[in-house]
Design a binder for these strands. Structure first.
Length: 200
DNA sequence: GACCGGATTGGC
DNA sequence: CCAATCCGGTCC
């Protein structure tokens, strides 16, 4: 089983596809973050916490872990390890490829918002792709959500930084577990690098 | 059962 | 900088 940092890195460039009835949206994953089980204070499974909300994280790899936060946003993760080992990769941004009109309607944004911004940020991504808790535990090989494989993004094109929005995590807030495609306009948050890209 | 704060976002 | 707006986690 590939380590979660490797999965995160490998997810960059792949296409996320969402099918709902006849409606199809798809986008290229350009920003992700790794969250690693009990020892990661930023993770929902920090300290070994196992609750109804994060139960899917404790399950096998290849499922979607979707949670609701700030009273209004959903965040989607890919579970990455075997049962009993709660690690996941948060999908933070995609570049829309298919269904931009539908994404715009779901987002309910003004026409001045450019297409490349429709999947920028974890909450916006979920809204554009109609991902909510109904998809928590959904397999990523299923009819409603799946990934299309793609060659890895070349290391020199990948930025690495601290994860966003986890200041409460103490020293773990500094871990360089965010990966993004440097050239993509759809990347959310700062592009400052804390680490030089390397093999993972 | 109460209380606190969030893996966010957009507007001022 | 800050409000929005529910829910989950924690502790009583």
């Amino acid at each position: 089983m590939q380590p979660t940092l490797g999965v995160a890195r490998a997810l960059l460039g792949k296409t996320l596809v969402r099918v709902r009835g006849s409606a199809i949206t798809a986008g290229r994953i350009v920003e992700v973050e790794a969250y690693r089980g009990p020892t990661d204070r930023a993770a929902h499974a920090a300290g070994g916490r196992r609750t109804p909300r994060n139960e899917v994280m404790w399950g096998p790899a290849g499922q979607l872990y979707v949670y609701f936060t700030y009273g209004m946003h959903h965040c989607a993760n890919v579970v990455t390890q075997v049962e009993g080992r709660p690690e996941a990769v948060l999908l933070r941004a995609v570049e829309p490829l298919v269904g931009t009109t539908l994404m715009r309607r779901r987002r309910a944004v003004r026409r001045t918002v450019p297409p490349w911004a429709l999947g920028r940020g974890p909450g916006n991504l979920c809204r554009a792709f109609a991902i909510d808790r109904a998809l928590n535990g959904e397999t990523l090989a299923g009819p409603r959500v799946f990934l299309l494989d793609a060659p890895p993004v070349a290391p020199h094109l990948v930025g690495i930084s601290e994860r966003i929005g986890i200041d409460y995590a103490g020293p773990d807030a500094l871990r360089p577990w965010r990966f993004f495609v440097k050239a993509s306009p759809a990347v959310s948050g700062p592009r400052r690098l804390t680490t030089t890209p390397r093999r993972t």
